[in-house]
Design a protein around this nucleic acid. Structure first.
Lengths: 346, 346
DNA sequence: CTCAATTGTGGAAACGTTTCCAAGAAGCAG
DNA sequence: CTGCTTCTTGGAAACGTTTCCACAATTGAG
């Protein structure tokens, strides 16, 4: 006879549903997975029992048998950085709608955490991977990544063999630097993220290109990659300001760093745009509402996340048809405010 | 004979390891799980094969058999809100260190997404759940939650039968309101989150208490819960400012909302602290660097996340000993800057 | 020296699904 | 009526672990 309460207080299984409905286990599975060749009556009868018992399939068992975990990994260096959380938020929304759950791995720029996360991705047989900007110099990680045969999308990151969604940081850096050069600046400092991270690399390339176009040389001492953590930019800016040939303009990241730069200005008794010009990359409330308001480079973070998720979903579902792996580029937009002026004659 | 390449291009299983090492499957399992009663030689031999083959256990199979998924759910309304992402970041760090993976579910304040996430938690047999502040009025969700027999910790949220980590928003609201009343303000507007979310409820309670202490009545029209989305506060503030009895002080949330409030000030030609006093809840770069700098209520977001994760881990590992479910409270700190002044005589 | 307890190992039965295969029923052309 | 499909269903074998049980070998107490 059908066992009504198999092991009391344990959750019902597909066997219980089958027994209660008086059908076979395979029929229940077929109905639940909306397969063809199931009669409407069977469908109704089974669904009634499913609802009554509150049956929910055990996803580990499903994953084990069907080799699909309905899980997407999301590797990001720092989820508390609004730049990333905004993108993750949009991506999660897209993936959730498609029935996937997002597994978050924050690496905090440590390679060991990156490889550990890749290992988790493999053990859990995740279905896809969203790889946010990270340090390309981590060779052990990129090696581990290469052996991972999995649909993957890079976000502001180059992933061999996988498509990527990228913001045109090079173009942005170019536009901003051009603007400052056009105002007459010749010594422009650039405060950006770690050197081996794609957005920074590209940004610096744009910065250099603008100098080359104008027939100017680049003083590499003015390019300051910042190790993560908010306090850092402060000392770099102080050092630049107090040096023998201080910059007449500064380009800085908006998140975390802009505030430190403003602190450095304050403690050196310097005001923008009067004493120095200032542009920030990544628009923030602070840039908008500081007085004077700060010119910013902005782009659509949520759109980046959405597109990345969509491309990944396509790949995850699409099987292994050969696919286009060319990167998708999103533009930046330069918002002119009141933080820049021509430099003083020296 | 041992099959060396079982199904080519498929990942090695524990059987392959056992075969190659010439031992039984159960021995491999014991060694891998560091169980007692395994000889050092066996251990060494097996580990060598594991390394050579690059064997990684299939976590779905482990979960299926051992009934532990090493997965923690994390339900949050909006991960792009720095208030939350900061906490999630700290919690993730703690959980990651303990070998758990975090599954993120962003609900965007929609009850259907909340119940959908709970369903995912059940199907995946997650080991624990981190529940961030959300709407307590969602009855279907709290019902689903109650049937979920799982270690759970609320963050700025009350969860029946579970411990919680809470910031003393009531005390914070009390302190800020007292301060403004002390300066002579009698019409203080409070812009906070949705009414049914614990921090807002508590904040309003503190606000009321300060009024009661001072023998003042509360004009409920001045308390404005904000639906999420950044533009909203703007119209509310405009309406207040243009009303017949405008407030002489405003308390507002720092994230997303402060900028709108400042916009509203600008479009109404109002300056703080001259025309109105301003305090923001949740310190931000903008509050620190606005001119004049804005007095803020702050607290340690990362600490909240860490403590919550630690308590959850304790419960997840600790089995079902009866536990203390009293909430842990963290204090707020009021940072006095230059955004408040005595109101003008009318 | 005997008997019980302890230690190390292997075999096999779970865990809860999906999926393959077979078989009966039903439809249809000749 | 016969022989082919096509539709619907059930039975059973996976999927890759952990864990229970059994058993031989070793140890220790009396």
């Amino acid at each position: 006879m059908a066992r009504t309460q198999p092991t009391p207080s344990s959750r019902p299984t597909i066997r219980d549903v089958a027994a209660q409905a008086g059908v076979s286990v395979s029929s229940v599975s077929r109905v639940l997975n909306r397969e063809p060749h199931t009669s409407p009556e069977l469908h109704a009868r089974i669904m009634r029992v499913v609802d009554r018992l509150g049956f929910e399939p055990h996803s580990a068992a499903q994953a084990l048998r069907s080799r699909a975990s309905n899980t997407i990994g999301c590797m990001v260096s720092d989820i508390s950085n609004p730049l990333y959380s905004e993108m993750v938020n949009a991506a999660e929304e897209e993936l959730q709608r498609a029935g996937y759950v997002l597994m978050l791995g924050a690496t905090r720029h440590a390679e060991e955490r990156e490889t550990a996360f890749i290992s988790a991705v493999r053990r859990r047989r995740m279905d896809g991977l969203l790889l946010f900007a990270g340090d390309n110099a981590h060779k052990a990680f990129t090696g581990a990544l290469a052996t991972l045969d999995l649909p993957c999308v890079g976000i502001d990151r180059e992933v061999p063999g996988a498509p990527s969604v990228r913001v045109d940081h090079r173009g942005g850096g170019l536009e901003v630097t051009r603007h400052l050069i056009g105002l007459g600046h010749r010594r422009i400092a650039l405060l950006t993220g770690p050197a081996a991270v794609l957005p920074s690399t590209e940004r610096v390339a744009g910065y250099r290109q603008a100098h080359v176009e104008a027939g100017l040389g680049v003083d590499l001492d003015l390019v300051r990659p910042q190790v993560h953590g908010s306090g850092i930019a402060f000392s770099d800016v102080c050092q630049l300001l107090q040096g023998p040939a201080p910059p007449t303009a500064i380009i800085t990241l908006g998140t975390h760093m802009l505030a430190s730069v403003m602190d450095a200005f304050a403690s050196n008794g310097i005001r923008y745009p009067h004493d120095i010009s200032l542009v920030c990359i990544g628009d923030t409330d602070l840039a908008r509402h500081a007085t004077p308001a700060i010119s910013s480079l902005t782009w659509d973070l949520a759109e980046v996340g959405r597109i990345a998720a969509k491309i990944l979903l396509e790949r995850v579902r699409g099987g292994d048809q050969p696919r286009d792996t060319r990167p998708v580029y999103l533009p930046t937009r330069f918002i002119l405010r009141h933080s820049c002026a021509a430099p003083h004659a020296t």
